[in-house]
Design a protein around this nucleic acid. Sequence first.
DNA 1: AACTTTATCAACCGCCGTGTC
DNA 2: AGACACGGCGGTTGATAAAGT
Length: 253
Amino acid sequence: MVEQEIISRKGPWTEQEDYKLAYFVGLFGDRRWDFIAKVSGLSRSGKSCRLRWVNYLHPDLKRGKMTPQEERLVMEYHSKWGNRWSRIARKLPGRTDNEIKNYWRTHMRKVRAQEKKHATPSTISSPDQSSSCQSSLFSNNNHAVDSHASYQEVGEENYQVQEIVEGYSMDDIWKDIAMSEDDINIFQPVNDGHSEENCNFSGPIMPSTSSWDYSNLDPLWVMDEEERKMLFPPIGDQYFSFYDQQGNTFLTG
DNA sequence: AACTTTATCAACCGCCGTGTC
DNA sequence: AGACACGGCGGTTGATAAAGT
């Protein structure tokens, strides 16, 4: 335990770490983060892995600025639930609690600054009191409701999410991983009904239980040390010479 | 152009709830 | 029932980019 903490890396994630993490989440699903942290050879804590995945690597994440509709939704739900960021995030597909939290803070700072400018002292409301500021920020509830409908809602919690990727796209990673998958057969998902043309990992990576039959793996899929060593010999950088930019090999065991 | 301020984003921390033994 | 491990959540911080002076 203590040793684990000592070797845990901190700070920004490198491309290679992202790649490793995405790959192992693809293999084992987005649970058991401590386990993934160990077998992947990443010198990161399970928590850190989870956070990176949830906030950055998850294939369903949207990128880029919040749309006005999303902004209104944030207002609406924040007025309902307060700082329940994860709950709000669930209503905004593709957005993370972290993202919403950041947005809110930024937004409130702006509002606070504006209020300082314009308001007389008696009218300044505390930005932390969502209900008080909400009335001015979000004066028309109907708009919010309308904006909600602007999503392609296919169910209470299911939206069709359009992935927007900017700059260095995660697609590149997904493609690379998907290609590399061909080289590795021992951990194929039980049901490979998700091989989509664009090879994003939303199928195999997301253990929607339809693609990853955990029931078959049971606790057995948790390898003991010996098995792990056999399957993932010295998981260090020497194991992953992966990601040579020519895209030749991913795993060189 | 140089410097300062503000905005944005990624990541960490600590607490808490839950499941397991 | 209690201890422990793990995952999730909300708060906070630090780095960097962008905008302003």
